[in-house]
Design a protein around this nucleic acid. Structure first.
Lengths: 234, 234
DNA sequence: CGAGATAGTCGTACAGTGTGCGAGTGACTA
DNA sequence: TAGTCACTCGCACACTGTACGACTATCTCG
């Protein structure tokens, strides 16, 4: 089997005090969570670790590979309930919420996730547990794949859009309320000729952002799960 | 009202032959479609237009703003049927497919889309037509927003993941079959301890990539629309 | 104990990036 | 004819990822 970035592991304990891949990944995750993709550079990362920039390259082939490792690290955070404990439907709901909150903790994910397929070990483990969960619903083998895929796609798509909004608020530096009211104003101007849009924006800015986004997420997930459940009952 | 990148327009015909924002956007779109986000640099773009790199900055404030324009250009390509013509359900289906194929034509979109909210004029127009379509289904005003949002999120999420796979095949330079068989091999190795995953990968690589991805997309969209439809019938 | 291999660090350098600045140029208006 | 406006563009700056090769500290083997 060919060597991959996933398979490479340190064979023995390091002689003197050295960098380690785990250390690098950990620090990179911190930087990414704090400063986003644009804030992560090999030089800055190395500086934070108190080492030279090119030292990192002994532990990690390229920056892209480092990002692959970081993405896989996120997949490790998601829990998928065993179907016996909660039943399929509420298990899937829990899974969806867990996936969402992991992405919200790592808002840089959407920006990089869609440029590469996820094939790391934690992605595999996640997939396995997901298939077990959806397998318990009574789908045909083929439908299990499709159902899990559509739920993941829905969740990731929704939360990715959510992150875009949230990050914009964060970067604007202003308070949520002032931002929302400005958005309203701006959108009403931009949506001037579009009465439905104007009304929609008004509706959506009437509650606080957080519960609005959550309601959004839950509504679609629920509908999707309904649709999937109907398929199994036939 | 504040000036935005959307509102700025040339006031009169140019005196001599000059660059124009439309020209720049058009060429940038070409470059992006061909070479992806990484392939678009202001210098290369200018070179293709036969001008100096910094000349572009007279027409466009920053590269990021240019990308905003390009994204909005994509939204212009999507058609949303009027509900009278097709009825809500099949209208939504058509809308979904149109959205999907637009993204497939511009596979760079997912990489940049989720880093900013879309508030350009074509995004607004798209939203308006979408709201009209979903409004015809008999949802409450609030549900119209939620339903349209969830369908868009599902479609964009699914097709974004799809693009990640397709681009990987494309970049590998190899034929689809050889790539698929290698993926199979690799995934079976990676999924060694994961029996469900192994079976799932095997199932998914048994047909050709194109119809596999399409079936995937349709399955989830259908389920979601079922779930939404059920909400309106109550 | 000595020699060589191994594991790891890192300074330098290269080819690129986005873009601010200010000088320059051609056409139109007064 | 003078001046202003619309537009172009070379240079420079600070930054990026990473290839290369020199360097050193430790471990292994004879």
């Amino acid at each position: 089997m060919r060597e991959t970035i996933w398979s490479r592991q340190r064979t023995a304990a390091p002689a003197r005090e050295t960098l380690s891949r785990e250390q690098i990944v950990k620090m990179a995750m911190l930087v990414l969570d704090e400063e986003g993709v644009a804030g992560l550079s090999m030089r800055k990362l190395a500086a934070r670790l108190g080492s030279g920039a090119t030292s990192l390259y002994w532990h990690v082939p390229t920056k892209d590979d480092l990002v692959d490792l970081l993405i896989d690290e996120v997949w490790a955070e998601i829990d998928v309930p065993e179907p016996e404990l909660a039943g399929w439907r509420s298990g899937a709901l829990l899974f969806g919420h867990s996936l969402r909150s992991a992405v919200l903790r790592h808002p840089w994910l959407p920006e990089v996730m869609y440029t590469r397929p996820s094939v790391g070990p934690h992605a595999m483990a996640l997939g396995e547990r997901g298939l077990v969960l959806f397998g318990a619903a009574g789908f045909s083998a083929r439908e299990v794949d499709l159902a899990m895929g559509s739920v993941m796609s829905y969740v990731l798509g929704t939360v990715s859009a959510e992150v875009a909004t949230r990050e914009m608020v964060r970067k604007s530096g202003r308070s949520e309320e002032s931002w929302v009211s400005e958005l309203l104003e701006q959108a009403e101007a931009a949506a001037g000729d579009y009465p439905q849009m104007r009304e929609s924006v008004r509706r959506r800015t009437s509650t606080d952002l957080d519960s609005e986004l959550t309601a959004n997420f839950v509504f679609g997930l629920d509908a999707l799960l309904d649709g999937l459940e109907a398929r199994v009952k036939k």
